[in-house]
Amino acid sequence: MTKKKPTILVVNDDGITAPGIKVLLEVMQEIGEVVVVAPDSPQSGMGHAITIGKPLRLDKIDLYPGVEMYKCSGTPVDCVKLAVHKIFKGKKPDLCVSGINHGLNYSINVLYSGTMSAAVEGAIEGIPSVGYSLDDFAYHADFEHTRVWVKTIAEQVLKNGLPKNSLLNVNFPNKSVEIKGIKICRQANAKWFEEFDERLDPYKREYFWMTGNFDLQDRGEDTDAHAINNGYVSIVPTQFDMTAHHVIPELNSWSFDIS
């Protein structure tokens, strides 16, 4: 008896024509039956935004031979929601993979990332989910060296499952780095220090262009940043319960008596 192939939902935030998603869907085709739902235009930095108050469009397209693909007018999270409820019609896929993102999503970037938010939405739906990102922002970034790692991580998730309400955040060094292996890490402590370049449009109206510098404040050797900087693929087990559990005892010691 032939074993049924797993169903795999492929999403991203760079848009349906991005080179990173092409590599991801090709690798997933080696493992299972693939359905792609991705934004019709780049949606980087959208975080967990959803579309409210305007229509969402979902159109089937023939971009790559033999792949069931849909472009969505909404955000990465919208893509997952529509996939689960309208394409899979509530029968959830066996795996949700997001990416491969053009640019790292390590440390604090996980909060801003549309790539990771799509994977988070998959986990919220109860689907084992993984977000993949590469240390290269170029449109024509070389993803070839990630293929074997993308595949083995996905296979391990399908084989072992993931604990409830968790997912994996995976980041790869760029092509110039020889990958030494995988490190299971924690999220590094870092932040962006933004600057806003003031400019004038042709009508002399002021506008702002956000720039900034990434400040890695964490020198620990068990972080995703340290792994990437030392030639390893980083895997951070991630959760969407944002409760600061360690603060609860402190707050319980406060007095909220208003009598």
Rank of each mutant, 00 (worst) to 15 (best):
Tyr106Ala: 09
Asp218Ser: 07
Val177Cys: 11
Ala244His: 15
Thr115Ala: 11
Val130Thr: 01
Asn171Ser: 15
Lys81Gln: 08
Ala38Arg: 06
Leu9Asn: 03
Lys180Cys: 12
Val110Leu: 08
His48Val: 05
Gly212Phe: 12
Asn12Ala: 04
Lys54Asn: 05
Ile248Gly: 05
Asp224Phe: 14
Pro249His: 01
Val37Glu: 05
Ser107Gln: 09
Gln187Cys: 14
Cys96Asn: 13
Phe214Ala: 09
Lys71Asp: 11
Phe172Met: 14
Ser253Pro: 06
Lys92Ile: 04
Asn169Ile: 03
His48Glu: 14
Ser234Asn: 12
Phe143Ile: 04
Asn229Gln: 12
Leu111Phe: 13
Gln29Met: 02
Ala225Ile: 13
Thr51Glu: 04
Lys60Leu: 10
Ser166Cys: 15
Ile182Met: 10
Phe143Ala: 01
Trp209Val: 12
Gly99Trp: 02
Asp215Val: 09
Phe214Glu: 12
Thr223Val: 15
Gln187Phe: 15
Val236Lys: 02
Ala190Met: 11
Gly114Thr: 08
Asp62Phe: 03
His246Met: 09
Leu63Lys: 12
Val84Lys: 07
His48Tyr: 12
Ser44Arg: 07
Leu9Met: 01
Pro65His: 11
Asp94Ser: 08
Leu158Thr: 03
Cys72Leu: 11
Phe214Ile: 03
Lys164Pro: 01
Lys71Thr: 09
Ile31Glu: 00
Phe208Thr: 01
Leu168Glu: 02
